[in-house]
Amino acid sequence: MTELLQNRGLLQDLLDLALTAFVVYRLSRLVKGVMAQRILGVLCLLFLGHLLTRFFALSAARLLIDALLASSVVVLAVIFQTDIRRAFTVLTRHQHEKNETMSDVIDELVFAVASLAQKRIGALIVIERSIPVDTYLAVGTDIDAKVTSELISSIFLPYSPIHDGAVIIQRGKLTKAGCFLPLTQNPEVNKNLGTRHRAALGLSELVDAVVVVASEESGTVSLVVGGKKTDNLDPPALGKLLRRLVEPRWLK
């Protein structure tokens, strides 16, 4: 404790430095793209210039640099007023929107799967979690679209050229369709199980993804995760299970 009190100055400085770095980093995130790097770089050079001119007592150069530094806050606020306004809006809505996004994706997915199962149209949907699934996917078409029930339904309609294969949802976006998944090699799996279910089991044995399967034969919905299958899920149960298994951070 005594040592801690003796080192209070050092701790204070470290805390000061850490807080400043955190605030600078959070502020720099308000600005999009490489502009943040440029602004930070210019500010670093200005501070370095301030230190050097102060040390070497270069009064005129110091006056110029200090004026630039002092006005930089106002200049940046004027230049990036749109970004700052947008950032403040995002800050206030962030949590609300995050939950909304998750809810939207799952609702759309559940609605699409329920409607496809009712019409006895087969569907295979993979929701990526912490382990990337890309290395286990064969062929497929890149899409990169918002997850909507209409889009999912139209992909799996029998006349769609990409209805065979799986749809992949990564970070809350529908990124690929028509992907072929590795089939399960587990000899204990029921031989009567269809290819869709085998593919769902196969992928879920390799990664932590959640796979939703709509059976065209039985019109039922199953959820596969970690090589385990849960069958005959009605829409509310599917939604509840998905909300439990998919954390918001995997959908952003």
């Binding site: 400085d13 430095l17 770095a21 980093y25 995130r29 793209g33 770089g41 500010l43 670093c44 230190l51």
Partner: peptide, 30 residues
């Protein structure tokens, strides 16, 4: 921007933030 590009951009912004914070703190300490 690709995922790796985004990661390197974030890393660079973090590094620059630390450098800027250090310079700001150092000029106050001096």
């Amino acid at each position: 921007m690709s995922r790796s590009g985004k990661e390197s951009h974030t890393l660079l912004v973090r590094a620059l933030s630390v450098v800027l914070a250090f310079l700001l703190w150092f000029s106050l300490v001096l």
